[in-house]
Nucleic acid binder design. Structure first.
Lengths: 361, 361
DNA sequence: TCGAAGGTGGCAAGAGGTTGTCGTCCGTTG
DNA sequence: CAACGGACGACAACCTCTTGCCACCTTCGA
């Protein structure tokens, strides 16, 4: 029961220990692992066996010190509690692990400064960086990119390679879907002005709107959180349309809540569409129709691009890798009913008590 | 626009570069940062200034190589897409960052083997490990603990220090709450038999049940996922009680879905209580009453304990740090109505389409 | 004025791998 | 039998920072 608490029974064996046990030089042990072809197959086998017995593992630090190959990459996230990030992290982690890389997670906690500090510390250690959702400025990003191979996710920074979501296809589907249900007038609830993805989504929506001959309104910007969505529900009454597309799912979820508290029925009175397809969108009633971003695939692709970059590939810096979205239809969208209820006299703002903070895309 | 793609404009400056620029020896530069008292204040100041100008940062790898202080810790998670983990990660990350540590995330992807492999690789690099939700056996954990300082979260392993959630208080609250609503008979939906927390929760429930004179039933085990909860909804009909406590929130959410599809109303027909208070529990209709674990605080506490362990503290290995839960009452629990609906003839199993996988605690 | 003490800074030896270069050994061929 | 070539393993330098030890200089007391 007195189990050893602190680790470090004795120092871990090194190549020197293995070399002594095997009766060869340390360099031979090193090569037996790193360049098996360079060593007699039999010798190599013996060395490996002995190393195995001794519990030898190569020390990544020592290796990294010499040739900058630490087998680590960093993933920077502006806020880890944002459900938008979960699947990205998962995809990135999986892709990294497949090729024997370890992932270091840098959570910026919504702070530009914290994010830069963390990355600054980590930059020397890792071989490359994926900025998955960052609060940093283009300038900071470019400086960082000069220091280390770097991929930006869902953002375009001139001169820095990126992997982005292509909302055009999905947005067209969404508009077509709404058009097919008889909606002719759509409100867009905008996200933060600084958010690159907000601009892109709005642009995709406008293109699709033109194509299908729909009228569009833009409200906002709102904070990309559930609270932002609740606030949007209030404003929405001013220029109420029969269909809404929200900047992201959190805003859409907040909107659902706000509308429900105000006595507006979804989808009977208003059809609501979100973006991203995060965890929770099919838990609400009605289930949220949303533009599903392939988040896990996005994370995976970013890491793979980064690894390519690390191994010397010259990626197209001005033409980002682009991954299409698709529409997931759930219950929050339905046929337009011409007879709309009059808005209630006093829209009520319901209390929010989310366990997690509910931050931005 | 041709922006540098690959990082490494030129090699980062080392203490030697700084030393040359400052006209001192490299060792003096090193000391100027690591042991300022050992160097003339003026000299130290000059060195720092020059280092700053040159953009020098100390290379954590080189330092770690020498004295095992890599300023990194590893957080192992069995499945990163489990919402249960989000807040833990956040708390851990924050605590680590506060003291200048970097966190390395090891996602085991639900696989014992993957988890061990990742940790094995990372163990040499980090100063310590937090096992937040692990699939590893007690034996593996003890071996790992021998290698490195290690803290287990929400699990008791003899001889290894741990931080656990104390469900007793919260469970008493939950039972008192249900008792006060007139329920006299509670079903517990069990989680995986291997899960330490399942045993603990059940035990806390039994103690509270005795105290309040309630009858208890145990159903399961079920996979700790939404699908597990849906399956539980089917079984539940066999021994239907007016109140259910589920192993965790995912099971509870699945149960809500299963019951709803079968035409059972919550809370009118059945009151449902979950565990953990994960993201999404207040998104469903009705909102889920749940035993809230202070997840973020848990993560923070684990890291702080680990850091204490690293700096030589002797933690109590057999008396874990224990953090209490509290009950969050939402709409899924209500007064018992004696007149219960008869169960429908054919319980329907609804389709599940979760964007994220929905895994275990 | 000289020696001791204390404050500074430099030298060099690691920490644990990787890798260019070279010597050795063996087998083969002319 | 000598020359040659290939395969293999050893040596040593190197990556960057840390640190024990020593030398030097200043200052102060005797």
């Amino acid at each position: 029961m007195a189990g050893s608490t602190g680790g470090d029974g004795q120092a871990a064996p090194t190549i020197y220990d293995v070399a002594r046990a095997a009766g060869v030089a340390a360099s031979t042990v090193s090569r037996a692992f790193a360049r098996p072809a360079r060593v007699n197959a039999e010798t190599a086998g013996r060395i490996r066996r002995i190393a195995e017995e001794m519990g030898y593992r190569t020390n990544p630090l020592a290796r990294a010190l010499l040739n900058e190959r630490s087998s680590m990459i960093a993933l920077a996230i502006s806020d880890i509690t944002n459900p938008y990030c979960f699947e990205i992290i998962r995809g990135a982690q999986a892709a990294a692990m497949e090729v024997g890389y370890t992932m270091l997670l840098a959570d910026g906690q919504e702070s530009d400064r914290l994010e830069r500090e963390t990355l600054d510390r980590a930059a020397r250690t890792v071989e490359g960086i994926v900025l998955a959702s960052t609060r940093m400025s283009d300038t900071s990003i470019r400086m960082m990119a000069k220091l280390r191979p770097l991929i930006v996710l869902n953002r375009a920074v001139a001169g820095v390679p990126s992997v982005v979501t292509d909302y055009r296809h999905g947005m067209r589907e969404a508009v077509e879907h709404l058009h097919g249900l008889g909606h002719s007038h759509i409100t867009y609830l905008a996200g933060p002005e600084a958010a690159w993805s907000d601009g892109i989504r709005w642009q995709a929506l406008r293109e699709a709107g033109v194509e299908w001959g729909l009228r569009l309104h833009r409200l906002g910007p709102y904070p990309p959180t559930m609270l932002g969505g609740v606030a949007a529900a209030d404003d929405f009454w001013r220029r109420s349309t029969s269909a809404v597309i929200a900047y992201n799912d959190l805003v859409a979820l907040g909107l659902l809540r706000g509308l429900s508290a105000a006595g507006v029925r979804v989808p009977q009175d208003v059809s609501v569409v979100g973006c991203d397809n995060i965890f929770g969108t099919d838990l609400v009633t009605p289930g949220l129709t949303t533009l599903a971003a392939p988040l896990r695939f996005l994370g995976r692709t970013a890491v793979q691009s980064l690894l390519a970059l690390i191994s010397g590939a010259q990626p197209p810096v001005d033409k980002p890798v682009s991954i299409p979205t698709r529409l997931v239809v759930r219950a929050s969208t339905d046929e337009r009913r011409p007879a709309r209820l009059a808005p209630p006299a006093i829209p009520v703002r319901p209390p929010i008590s989310t366990p997690a903070g509910t931050p931005a895309t």
